[in-house]
Design a protein around this nucleic acid. Structure first.
Lengths: 206, 206
DNA sequence: GTCTATAGAGCGATAGAC
DNA sequence: GTCTATCGCTCTATAGAC
């Protein structure tokens, strides 16, 4: 399956993928032209078609590469070694929020949502490699906190789902549709509200 | 500002808007051709350009019409006349969830997100007419519940934001990217989890 | 106002030289 | 593998008849 590429080819391939990613995330799939990608990558259009069968194929390669990055980023995510529920939940929420509103993640999120009806397999690949794997990891953390008596809840997956959902509020939406931020719904305020909420709802019955 | 249209023209205009909405929500902005809209509306392309200055203009007209519909739909939303917090919160959550996953709302949500970077004013108009107005209405309901001693919380807007966010979890995302539903994250289960959490976190200190 | 017909530009993809 | 040049198609938008 692996074909040994010359160093020169590999570099061009990376340049093409980088350029394509930037174009797709900026302008969406349909509005991006292969000419534009070629120019940005410093190669000719024919070179792109020597590496990728079609524009669709190039698009798929981008999403898959992003999925690999996501998987890597998640496994290197470290949490504070604390025995205070608030400290741990706040750290989790801060990392999640920073991830959600980062330009790269936001860009891929936008385009996957937009193109999901026409690329269902790509959307599935992305969702399983990113959000689903991330939530699985959070489940492990929550289960561990439960075991240590820091939290109490019934269904781990639903609990995590609700906690993560609380971070996708006004603040997140404003970034997503590029509206100016509302100070009342800053990232910090959203995180604090979610953590307070979770601590009250999941506090162990003393 | 109002130009009196002949009944025949008005009918054609509505047909064009309906067709355009269906096309845009199905295929996205860039992938929809004016020819397609014209065929679906049963008019010629030139007729479309007689009513709308450009494809952009047509797109804007669609979003604005949807905003009006949203505003209307919200004001007619009625809630049960109950004194039980769970009953009210469940009713709210059910209506919100049904709204979120409905094809029309989901379609407009997808396209606004996708095109927001290129149509910031449209995104702002939509956001203020829909989600923002809806949340304002929810704030009134929550304030009323607090006044009646059914709930207790500090900041109404942040509380509502968190509550609504919990409904945008796995279930919502699966609909959004057209993945098969996961029975463990049914709409009912998501609603129940959110309501249970809210009741625990906002229970009045007896 | 509404139609048919077409202009004019840009697109994805390919042929062929090197 | 990479380039230049180009094909064939589709697109938005308009001109002109009715």
């Amino acid at each position: 399956m692996e074909k040994p590429l010359s160093p020169r080819s590999a570099a061009k391939r990376t340049a093409m993928l980088d350029a394509a990613q930037a174009c797709f995330l900026e302008s969406g799939y349909a509005s991006t032209s292969v000419d534009e990608v070629a120019t940005r990558a410093g190669v000719s259009k024919a070179t792109i078609y020597a590496h990728f069968a079609s524009k669709d194929d190039l698009f798929g390669a981008i999403i898959c590469r992003r999925c690999d990055d996501q998987a890597e980023g998640l496994s290197s995510l470290s949490l504070p070694d604390s025995s205070d529920a608030r400290t741990i939940l706040t750290a989790i929420a801060q990392r999640l929020m920073a991830l959600f509103v980062s330009p790269e993640v936001m860009g891929i999120y936008r385009i996957v949502i937009a193109e999901a009806p026409r690329y269902p397999e790509l959307a599935k690949t992305w969702y399983e490699a990113g959000p689903l794997r991330g939530k699985q990891r959070l489940c492990d953390v929550f289960d561990d906190m439960k075991r240590r008596g820091l939290l109490d809840f019934d269904d781990t997956r639903r609990t995590v789902d609700a906690f993560v959902g609380m971070l996708r509020g006004e603040c997140f939406h404003r970034v997503m549709i590029e509206l100016p931020p509302n100070p009342h719904f800053s990232a910090e305020a959203t995180i604090e509200t979610a953590v307070n909420f979770a601590l009250k709802a999941f506090a162990p019955t003393a």
